[in-house]
Computed example of a mutant assay.
Amino acid sequence: MENPADTIKRIKASMGDSLAILGHHYQSDEVIQFADIRGDSLELSRKIDSLDAEHIVFCGVYFMAESAATLSREGQKIHIPDTTATCPMADMAEAGRVRNVLDILQKNGRNIIPLTYVNSSAAVKGVVGEYGGSVCTSANAKTMLAWALKQGDGVLFLPDKHLARNTANALNVPEDTRIILPVDVIDGDPALHVDPALVADKSFIIWPGYCPIHEEFTLESMETIRANEPDAKIVVHPECDPALVAAADGDGSTTFLIKYAEEASEGATVYIGTEENLVNRLTALYAGKKTIKPLMAHQCEDMGKITVEKLAQKLLTLETATPVTVSDDIKEPARLALQRMLDVCA
């Protein structure tokens, strides 16, 4: 019986340019070795339109495949090896709840502009597009928040409270203009937990979501490193708590973290606070030249659902597999929200 790795190699060779495998940076080495293109979620989705491939297999989590489907051309089919590989942060903002909150916030004639992190469902992006908002990534969050703040009376930033606060800090958005919505809006009745009077004088309203992986990193771990290795550098992802970001030597997207490791001087020690698969890959890449270590050892369970076995099985069934699709009533406003970002960041 053919092993899964050989199956993948054989099918890739036979399908040629009609197949493209995209791999997110947080995928395991076992899976990422088969990726034709590596990158973060939006970086990968933006390449869809330029690909000749009919079948595009997205090795990541489900919202990423949805973004790819939203930006895909007619005739392109987007697949994901495991449809249960979701993003807990994205799941914390359900489209119906986001719409309800926006309706509450816009009472009394306020024009609240929603800005959603790319780590959100296509349905949420669609709601954001309907309400005149846009999308951001961790790399362009400052640019997009600055844009959004100029569009109306206030901004609803979702779903990540940490990226929201870190971006606001970078732009010097006053603390007294901010408010984090009660966590009950995630799984309760938004109408019971959002008082228009409470947010009437706030121009930066924050959804209470977070990434469970980046939430695990602690200030104590950084302080221990500072005490034991004072020459070591520490950089973190902006999905981390603002206290960690403030204490770090730098913060930024996965692309920033990769570049920081690349540009670190020979012999340097760099601790990186993000998903462990990426850090371990950088550790191996620079072994013998510089020391790259994870701030803490944490892996995303949902990213881990994409395995070599599941990738091989998906490739074996491409012709009959049901691709990831986004309905037109969601796709059009979601594409509009994404396009606003692309236009602002052009």
Rank of each mutant, 00 (worst) to 15 (best):
P114F: 00
T7V: 14
A261Y: 14
K290A: 07
V270T: 09
G250Y: 11
K77R: 15
D52I: 00
V101F: 03
N108T: 11
H55I: 03
E43W: 11
D82C: 03
E43I: 00
V101H: 00
V308M: 03
V199W: 07
I112R: 05
Y62E: 05
I113V: 15
D251W: 14
A5H: 03
E309I: 15
E74G: 02
E175R: 11
P196K: 06
D187S: 13
L181W: 10
A122S: 13
R335N: 07
G154I: 03
A93F: 06
D176I: 05
C59V: 06
D91M: 09
V326L: 04
A123W: 00
A191I: 03
D184G: 04
Q76D: 07
C240V: 11
N111L: 10
G188C: 05
P190M: 14
L198W: 14
L316A: 08
Y271S: 01
R46S: 15
E275P: 12
A227G: 08
L22G: 04
R97T: 09
V61H: 00
Q151W: 02
I205W: 10
A346E: 14
K233C: 03
H79D: 01
F34L: 01
V185H: 09
G209M: 10
H214K: 07
G75T: 02
V245K: 04
R335V: 01
H193S: 05
W207C: 01
L163R: 06
F34Y: 02
E301A: 14
Q33G: 09
Q106I: 06
G152V: 12
D329A: 14
I272Y: 04
I113Y: 12
T116C: 15
N166S: 12
I225P: 05
K77H: 11
G133Y: 06
T255C: 01
D249W: 08
H79T: 07
N108L: 01
V308H: 00
A65R: 11
A334C: 10
D187C: 08
G188F: 10
K289Y: 10
L156A: 03
V326W: 08
D249C: 02
H193Y: 15
L318I: 11
I48C: 04
D195N: 11
R38C: 09
L145I: 01
M89A: 05
G126V: 03
I104L: 09
D153E: 13
E2Q: 06
M92Q: 09
A85L: 06
P230A: 10
G75Y: 08
G109P: 05
A85K: 08
I32H: 03
H237K: 12
T322W: 05
V118Y: 09
T177R: 13
A247N: 02
K331H: 07
L318M: 12
S121W: 01
D49W: 08
F204E: 02
S14K: 13
C211A: 08
L71E: 01
G252L: 14
I272K: 05
A13S: 15
P114S: 01
A200I: 01
Q27T: 06
E74F: 00
M341K: 03
L42P: 01
S265T: 09
R73W: 02
A164L: 05
D187E: 13
P238G: 12
G304Y: 05
P230Q: 09
A90I: 09
K47M: 02
S41Y: 02
C240Y: 02
Y286A: 00
G188P: 02
S138N: 11
V235F: 11
